[in-house]
Design a protein around this nucleic acid. Structure first.
Lengths: 252, 252
DNA sequence: CCCAAATAGTGAGCGCTGCTCACAAAGAGA
DNA sequence: TCTCTTTGTGAGCAGCGCTCACTATTTGGG
């Protein structure tokens, strides 16, 4: 472990290389199954059959069903976090409203393109499964940090005015906040976290309604509705109305 | 069927009475299992064991696993719809903001009190399960209608101003709207449905974050945060700010 | 009252699942 | 070459949803 990770490029031995490839193949087939047959419909034996292996061989790579799910969750968190940070960085650092807008659109794009992964991390977990926080935490933290940082920067630059929101100034600080964002939590009031969290919940709720629910059958033009929803949410976050309009116009 | 339902009080025969009781017992044990061991963790054989019956006997009452889930879903929809309409009717008909406020608080109360049912209908469905719309539809429609009616009444009384929202006036009408609310959809513009739907999505997202996610560990005082969230959402719906404040104050 | 029809419950069994374990190849390092 | 670690095998266990032939039990009409 230590010896392989110590020297930079980590020269994987031939065996480790094969092992890694096998792990990726398993995860790929698992994702395939979830996408095809719905959430929770994942059979280790079916994966083994696809790979023409004995089912017991899979346990050399994942100690259990739950371990596989956990790995898929971590991948999904990283995938969405990548998509969001990439969308954020495509906009100039001082275009705060544009960055939030871009992040939220990237989130929806990712969710529509990867409904199975979306279900995995934002829906009810699989049967008796509970994601182990110590493994999922860091990956989920990247996501939270990306959202929070953008809003904190916007507030700092006065592109958004937290004092014009409905979220009270004094708010108890949660353990997760001080844990995930130790430095940010220190010099940013928890109010910002409250605003970002509730706003993100609104966005998430829309996506849940669109992907799991029957929102599309209620209002077919979900693109237009999402833009409106996002403008509403951003107004609620205290973003400058003019900046919101500009963010919507400048969409690449 | 027809003969038993035709004459008012429907004098159930002794057998039908027992049968109904057994069905309720099965559903009760099923709910217990879901609440205890998490969503999707439902075993027909375990239920049969609890009832000291052969597992095959259960199939006299529910044709399949999915049928049981469907029945639980319908019950859950009716349960939440009851809670919401009851909360609504506890407020005077002309207190539109208060009614929306009450409905949303009842929704949260219900979700916190019945997390298993909440997961059943608002989370990712069980493994390969897809709720048959023709069975779930009516029950879900009651919920949708309750929300929509309150907002439509508020808009009609000008307690809320749809024209001050971000949702565009012209919006395509979905099949579900004309189907579930044939009369309402006719003389109410789809814009109202769009506003109500996105607002409800925001509320739902908050509840998902609080119940499935780790919102509580981020901001411990979720009561206060929910009130703020709700005020934000209602502002976004075009509710009169003064009425929103009043709704929050008058909480019974 | 009795007998046929409908209903409720049984137990064996099929094919599937996740998972374990003793064992056999195959590769890596001395 | 010999040894130790890693991969893969196949049988098997207990559990699952579900089916089917069969047996009690209850019901209602002749």
């Amino acid at each position: 472990m230590n010896s392989s990770a110590s020297s930079g490029p980590a020269p994987l031995s031939r065996r480790q290389e094969y092992r890694q490839a096998t792990i990726e193949e398993i995860k790929g087939l698992a994702r395939c199954q979830l996408a095809e047959h719905g959430p929770g419909a994942l059979s280790l034996r079916a994966i083994a059959r696809d790979m023409r292996m004995a089912s017991s061989a899979l346990y050399r790579y994942f100690a259990s069903y739950d371990d596989l799910i956990t790995a898929l969750c971590v991948d999904a968190y990283n995938s969405v976090a990548d998509a969001l940070t990439q969308a954020r960085d495509a906009r100039p650092a001082d275009d705060h409203a544009g960055r939030w807008w871009a992040i939220c659109h990237a989130h929806r794009r990712w969710a529509l393109d990867n409904p199975a992964d979306f279900a995995l991390i934002f829906g009810t977990p699989v049967p008796g499964y509970q994601a182990p926080a110590r493994v999922t935490g860091p990956a989920a933290g990247r996501l939270a940090a990306a959202l929070f940082d953008v809003y904190a920067a916007a507030a700092h630059a006065r592109a958004a005015r937290p004092d014009r929101t409905q979220v009270p100034e004094k708010l108890e600080v949660g353990e997760l906040l001080t844990e995930l964002l130790p430095e940010a939590g220190a010099h940013h009031p928890p109010r910002l976290a409250g605003i970002a969290a509730t706003a993100w919940a609104s966005v998430l709720g829309y996506l849940v309604a669109e992907i799991f629910g029957s929102l599309t059958r209620l209002i077919p033009d979900t693109d237009q509705l999402y833009d409106a929803h996002l403008r509403t949410v951003m107004l609620g976050m205290g973003f400058d109305p003019d900046l919101i309009q500009a963010a919507g116009r400048d969409e690449a």
